[in-house]
């Protein structure tokens, strides 16, 4: 798996990785220090040939046994020549949900970072165009945070009060 890439990062950028571990399915993870993520991404792309941007997203740890730090942002990259994925993770706290952008390294991170901002409220420093991706600008809050209520509805135009036996009434969860 991507053990090799993590070892290379350790050798090239000392103290970039806080921790390394292996998940249940045998995937190797590297926890990157927040301020080093852009350097690590650059190193992976330019020196280690991880050129294909796969994806990124965040996890809200509020309901997990260890809820602090509140957020983690996960990155997946792939190297066609080595045929392996690399899995990276960055932690950030609730008070300061800000991470350096990697948009200048991978253009694909543009939309993914906007999506993460949209749903988790994590800001990407230096992104430059951090608009909401799927939701509308008037939307309040970040719906994939665990403290965002499942039935909280914010329609742009008023919904008709249809009684739905499964979801409850359609308007804002009330009456």
């Amino acid at each position: 798996m991507s053990q090799w890439a993590l070892e290379q990062i350790e050798a090239r950028i000392p103290d970039a990785l806080e921790q390394k571990y292996v998940d249940r399915a045998g995937g190797h993870w590297g926890v990157v220090k927040r301020e080093k993520i852009a350097d690590v991404a650059k190193c992976l792309k330019e020196e280690l040939d991880f050129k294909l941007f796969i994806s990124m997203d965040a996890v809200d740890r509020l309901m997990l046994p260890e809820p602090t730090p509140r957020f983690e942002v996960v990155y997946f990259l792939y190297s066609v020549s080595r045929n392996e994925h690399v899995r990276l993770k960055v932690f950030c706290t609730e008070d300061d949900p800000e991470i350096p952008t990697i948009r200048h390294v991978y253009q694909g991170a543009n939309w993914s970072e906007r999506l993460t901002w949209d749903f988790y409220g994590i800001r990407f420093k230096g992104h430059g165009d951090l608009r909401r991706m799927l939701l509308y600008e008037e939307f309040k809050g970040h719906p994939l945070r665990k403290d965002y209520a499942m039935r909280d509805r914010q329609p742009l135009i008023p919904e008709r009060p249809i009684k739905d036996i499964f979801r409850g009434p359609g308007t804002n969860g009330a009456t």
């Binding site: 294909l52 941007f53 994806s55 066609v80 253009q107």
Partner: peptide, 17 residues
């Protein structure tokens, strides 16, 4: 690669992934 193209759209560029 940078944008994260995969599938037929990436293979049309000659990248055999």
């Amino acid at each position: 690669l940078d944008f994260g193209f995969t599938g037929p759209c990436l293979r049309a560029n000659g990248v055999k992934y």
